[in-house]
Design a protein around this nucleic acid. Structure first.
Lengths: 215, 215
DNA sequence: CTCCCTCTGTGACTCTTGTCACTGTGCTTG
DNA sequence: CAAGCACAGTGACAAGAGTCACAGAGGGAG
C-alpha cells in the first residue's frame, strides 16, 4: 500500500467531484500489478470495481475450453465496466484482465460503487460513460469477428495495438494468435503477406508497423 | 396516437417512480409498429430512447456491405440500450431494430432521457440495469460467434428463439441464414442434421422444435 | 387443375482456416 | 563454442463454410 495523492486521482479522473475523491481515498485500496500479472481471473468472484491509474490493461474473454480473445484495452482514467456489473455471474464464459505493463489500479469495493451511484452525480455519470464507451468498443470487436476475415482482423488488431502502445509491437506470433483465437502458423502466413505489401517489417519477437492504412 | 394508460406503463416498468411515470406520459410519444417494420434504421440519427411496451423486437448489427446478424431480442419492459447512447455515431457499422410482431414502443426524446438520469433515481437505476443486461447478452452473442462453429451457433439461435417466441419457429431457412450472417444452403444442411437427431422437425416455412438440449 | 413462384434439398467445387510435420535460425546458457 | 530452446517459415492435408447449379415440392392465383 502506498500513499494515494489526491491530485493524481483527480488528474486521471477529472470529472469526479471533490467529495467523492475524498471518499475514494478513504474507501478504496491501491494495488500495484506487474507486467503480465492477471488483475482479474476467470470465474473469480468480483467484489471490486477496478479503476486504472497507471499502465495498460487488456481485457479478454475466455470460454470453458481455454480459448480466449482480446476484447479491448483499458488506459489510465478508464474503469473496467465488467467489474461494475457485480451480478452473480455463474456462466462458464468469463473475463480475464491482464496487465500489459506495470500498472496501478484502484479497487473500489462493490458496495461503495453501488452506493455512490445514488450519492454522487459525477460517479453515476462516470459509470454510465464507462458503459457506453465499453459497449462501443465491444461492438467494434464484435464487428471485426462477425464480418471480417482473419486477415482484416489482424490488421484491426495491429492498429489497435499501435494506438495504445506504439509502432513497436513486442509480441510473438503465438501471442497474437492467442489473442485472435487463431493459430500461430496462420498468423505467420498473414503477417508475411503484410510484410510483402510493405505495411510492416517482421523481426524476432517484435513487429515494426509502418503504415497499416495502405492494406 | 393513442391514450396512454399510466397503469400499463407502470405494469411493464414497475420500478419507475410515480412522478417519473407522469413525466413519461407527458413527454414521450407512443408509436405503434407493425410486424416486420423497422423501428430504427442503420445510419439514422438517434433522437429518442426506445421503451418497449408490447410485442417483440429484434436488434441487429449491420455492416456497410449489407451483412447483418442478430444481437438480441427486446421484450416488453426492456429498453434499447443503444438508443440511450446518443453519442454522435459516425461509424459505418450500425444498428437496426425490427419488430418481430406488432408492437408498441414509447419514444422518449433523448433530451429528457439524459435529464432524468440526474432527476430520478429510479430512471438511472433502470438505465444502468439496461446497460448491464444488454452487455451480458452481447457477450453471449459474442461468445457464440467467437468460439463456436456454425452448428452450435444455430442451436444457440434456435434456443433463444424458442425462449421468446415458442417452439413453432416461423422462419424460412433464408431468414435464419441472414440472421446468422451465413448462407441458406449451409443452414439447410445443418437443420437437416438436427432433424436427423430428432431435435427438430422441418416443415415448409417453419420449424418445430422438440428438444435442443439433446444435441 | 395448371402455372408459377418461393422454399427446400443436394452434389460439386473453392477458399479460408486449422493442424501436422518438419526445417531453419537466432539467442542464451553452460 | 556447443547444446538447447523458443520463435519463425513452409508444405501438405483436413475440415468448415460459402457459392453455384439445378432438381423437387408445396401453396396460391387464376
Amino acid at each position: 500500500m502506498q500513499t494515494l495523492p489526491k491530485e493524481l486521482i483527480q488528474k486521471k479522473f477529472p470529472n469526479l467531484e471533490d467529495q467523492l475523491l475524498d471518499e475514494l481515498l478513504a474507501q478504496s485500496t491501491l494495488r500495484e500489478v506487474e507486467e503480465g500479472e492477471e488483475v482479474m481471473r476467470s470465474g473469480q468472484y468480483i467484489t471490486s470495481t477496478i479503476l486504472l491509474l497507471r499502465g495498460l490493461l487488456k481485457v479478454y474473454r475466455e470460454d470453458d475450453e481455454g480459448n480466449e480473445f482480446l476484447m479491448y484495452y483499458l488506459e489510465p482514467g478508464n474503469a473496467c465496466a465488467l467489474s461494475m456489473m457485480c451480478t452473480a455471474r455463474t456462466e462458464k464464459s468469463q473475463i480475464m484482465v491482464k496487465a500489459v505493463s506495470d500498472a496501478e489500479v484502484l479497487l473500489v469495493p462493490s458496495h461503495f460503487s453501488e452506493l455512490w451511484l445514488g450519492k454522487y452525480k459525477s460517479w453515476h455519470n462516470f459509470v454510465i460513460a464507462s458503459y457506453r464507451q465499453r459497449f462501443e468498443e465491444l461492438l467494434q470487436t464484435l464487428d471485426s469477428i462477425a464480418f471480417k476475415g482473419l486477415d482484416e482482423r489482424l490488421v484491426f488488431y495491429l492498429k489497435r495495438h499501435v494506438k495504445v502502445s506504439g509502432k513497436q509491437v513486442k509480441l510473438s506470433h503465438q501471442q497474437i494468435a492467442d489473442e485472435l483465437n487463431s493459430s500461430r502458423e496462420v498468423i505467420s502466413r498473414l503477417l508475411k503477406k503484410l510484410e510483402q505489401t510493405g505495411a510492416i517489417t517482421l523481426h524476432r519477437n517484435y513487429i515494426e508497423v509502418h503504415d497499416l492504412s495502405i492494406v
